[in-house]
Amino acid sequence: MTIHQGIEISGLSHAVRGAEILAPTNLKLPAGRITALIGPNGAGKSTLSRLIARIEPPVTGRVLVNGLDVATTSTDRLARELAFLGQHSWLASRLRVRELVAFGRWPHCKGRPGPADRAAVDRALAEFGLLPIAGRFLDTLSGGQAQRAHLAMTAAQETPWLILDEPLNNLDLAHARALMAHLARLRDGGGSILVVLHDLNFAAGWADHVVAMKDGRIVAEGTPADVLTAPALSSLYETEICVGEHQGRPLVLHHL
């Protein structure tokens, strides 16, 4: 039996107290690609990413990540297959940056880090420019620095799949671009990424595959050039959006 590499979603739906958040959905996300999930507020993007990352149990349906059923595989095994970073980063405990990033190695070392784990933590700290502030407490950092620390923790997990819910929150433009470049490097090394994005130009510039959602449904799917067109985006966000072109990629002019 060949195990399908990638994420396969069949009949997946979610509701909170009877209110439908995600209509029954079928979707295949390719491995080895950056997939961007876009759509207006309340479209169900976060819910879909949280269901895939088994943070929330679905009402119906099934998710396979690289052939592993998310509902029946042990959460420990899944932590070595996918790493998830959500939007809420409130922390009760008072941690230093390095301590937080080191938690990313937990699925591999269970709290007994070896040399390989320490090296991975150092790599992640360096990758996200955190080495100068590795000894600082998280509650002394700015929102963007804290976000980078969380990203570094997720990256230190070094899983085949990376699922990020609006990772560009709080990041300045230099760090936002650096993050996307980091994701592109991971992809070039064989990694697979699902990322919820609000800034359409980051999707246009870096994603290989775009999935557009609205009202709990998937309304469009394809390459950035296919999905990020003026008519499609205008109807997706219910507002007039112009799309230009820059270096062969769509350039979304939504701010004018």
Partner: peptide, 10 residues
Amino acid sequence: LGRERAISLG
């Protein structure tokens, strides 16, 4: 670390 991070770390 809280529910979300704990599940995510397995």
